[in-house]
Nucleic acid binder design. Structure first.
Lengths: 342, 342
DNA sequence: TTGTGGTTTGGAAGCGCTTTCTTTATGAAT
DNA sequence: ATTCATAAAGAAAGCGCTTCCAAACCACAA
């Protein structure tokens, strides 16, 4: 009834090769003739074979698993990041052991107990302030560490140029009449996790505006948690301060969403009375006609994964920094003539 | 230099027993004399031995891994839940493969790809509406499934009696003069994830109040996302409606925290003008003097883990439901005489 | 043809454990 | 003391894979 999963032996038999050859095909070893490789691949397909990762690990003496440490927050951002990382890792049949930072204070103990069990080959750490914890001897730091969406000169890092993003936002919004406003994300999970991303974006925005000869009074910056609600509150706040037209740079798409909602409630015309620019480039922004700075999140994750794999495989060079740039996507929320919207 | 991890053989040698015996000690097999077991345990300790989980898996033909599906939200709640689950699982040297519901729409594909790799022995699912997805054939459902913090007649479940909690809140608050208010949590990750917890608590509260001869007009219920901010908004809203003294039942400690903050800003006296009762019983409530309904979250997680292990080991009985009850913890926020606070 | 060096391939050994089978010790009953 | 059932322990046979080594094969030059 419950027929056992096929093993490498069955595949070898069917393809009329030795088990060694099958293994070599599995591991993309170069010294297999294309013709042989195809025979093996066909046999695997026919049998519905998939290799047993545990056997692989015990035989290979490696874990083929990477620890991913991130402040999972049921967020589009991490969802996409994970996707990019997973994509690369899956290609090499590596697995991910997820270490959500449920609470920074518990992280260390948690990592210790669990990563011991997993004995992972490397760490992928995605957290603004968390990098400081890493040099700490308590971490399994003999293994390679790569930072995602965070920068440190001590490690390989793949990160977004948020300041540049802010500048791009400024350049774009400066062309419109009306005052400038900004909403800054400031999420504080705990003292440890200082989120500097929001800050960088606003700083860039301010710099960009200065170049364009405009200014951003600090009263025009609303600091908010990461939620649509925050966007609504921000707009309410701005309306108390002054009158449209507004040019608002929201530090995250989700905040922009809140602004959109509130603007509708207030009967303000998006693209005219309220020009709005988000940050993230999440898929749903297209449907909402929200202009945004699209972040190549998946690529960033993928690149980090690649760097980690290289380290795992023995690469010894000095820390590499891969900087990613957002792309301006203009939609109706920053265009009066809706003809141009996509 | 990099001296290899000791294996079962070294332990066997040092303890002057066979490797079989060492394995039996590892697996708590009954047929080992206490004296022998001690010798083995001592040897393991001396060598700093810890078993290789991968080898165990390939030899045993099981994965000794449990999938944990939950909407990780960097929340004290999940942190504690995980702790309870992990505690039990670690005892039996089972591991956890974490499947955060980063986005319900992506969950299925994600689970499919990753759980295939992990080939886990069972599923622990913690999500209010997610249970509906499970009977779906796409899920690895031949394996046992246990629900945590959710109930379904189809599966073993460990869940909190939120309605009872609401009633307890009512009983407690009804003794005080002043109008009743409530803040209901309503988090919507996606259409799929309908959070009914908040609703149940408020329903229980309303029922309890009715029994006590008090009422809760629906205008006195503020629906909020799960954030401290929500609590602040709620109190502002209540102040617009009426005048203190207020008796507020916050559907979650975090909301209560917001109320506390806002009350301070408004100069309202907690415990007199504003009586406040939270829900969750998180550690920090003690420091804040916040009365709360403490949930035995860890125990709930632990129980779920136990049930799952039993299923994995072959238990075939019909679905079991383990109901957990919150405990009322009275502190200064619902006591005028602060002498009684802890 | 024979030889040479490189490329492909088969298969055995081994990774660290579980489990079964067997042997040996234990001890209660005769 | 002897027997027999039972408990405890050892040894060996895998689990499904990687890797190493040696054998087979190949193309081309001498």
């Amino acid at each position: 009834m419950a027929k056992r999963k096929p093993t490498i032996h069955e595949v070898a038999h069917l393809a009329k090769v030795g088990i060694g050859t099958v293994s070599r095909v599995l591991n993309n070893h170069p010294s297999v003739r294309p013709e042989t490789r195809n025979r093996v691949l066909t046999a695997m397909a026919n049998l519905g074979y998939s290799p047993n990762p545990h056997a692989r690990r015990v035989a290979g003496g490696k874990s083929y698993t990477v620890s991913l440490v991130l402040p999972v927050a049921s967020t589009e951002f991490y969802s996409r990041l994970l996707e990019g990382i997973e994509h690369i890792l899956a290609e090499e049949r590596y697995e991910i052991a997820l270490f959500p930072i449920l609470s920074p204070s518990r992280l260390e103990r948690y990592l210790e107990s669990r990563s011991l069990a997993y004995q992972t080959d490397g760490l992928l750490v995605s957290s603004q302030g968390l990098a400081h914890l890493l040099p700490n001897q308590k971490f399994p730091t003999e293994r390679p560490v790569v930072l995602v969406d965070a920068y440190s000169p001590r490690y390989d890092s793949a990160f977004m140029d948020n300041r540049l993003g802010g500048q791009m936002a400024a350049l774009h919004l400066a062309q419109f009449p009306g005052a400038m406003f900004a909403i800054q994300v400031q999420e504080e999970l705990d003292e440890v996790l200082k989120n500097t991303v929001g800050q960088e974006r606003i700083e860039g925005f301010r710099e960009g505006l200065k170049k364009a000869g405009k200014s951003l009074p600090s009263s025009h910056v609303f600091v908010s948690r990461f939620s649509a609600e925050g966007g609504r509150l921000a707009l309410q706040h701005f309306l108390r301060l002054s009158k449209p037209p507004f040019n608002i740079f929201a530090g995250a798409d989700l905040l922009a969403l809140g602004v959109l909602e509130e603007a509708e409630r207030q009967g303000l015309k998006i693209g005219e009375e309220v020009r709005l620019l988000g940050f993230d480039g999440h898929p749903w922004t297209a449907a909402k006609g929200l202009s945004t700075l699209a972040q190549p999140i998946e690529e960033m994750g993928a690149e980090a994964a690649r760097m980690l794999l290289e380290r795992i495989r023995g690469y010894k060079g000095s820390p590499r920094a891969r900087r990613f740039e957002p792309t301006l996507v203009v939609r109706s929320s920053t265009q009066t003539r809706s003809v141009y919207a996509d």
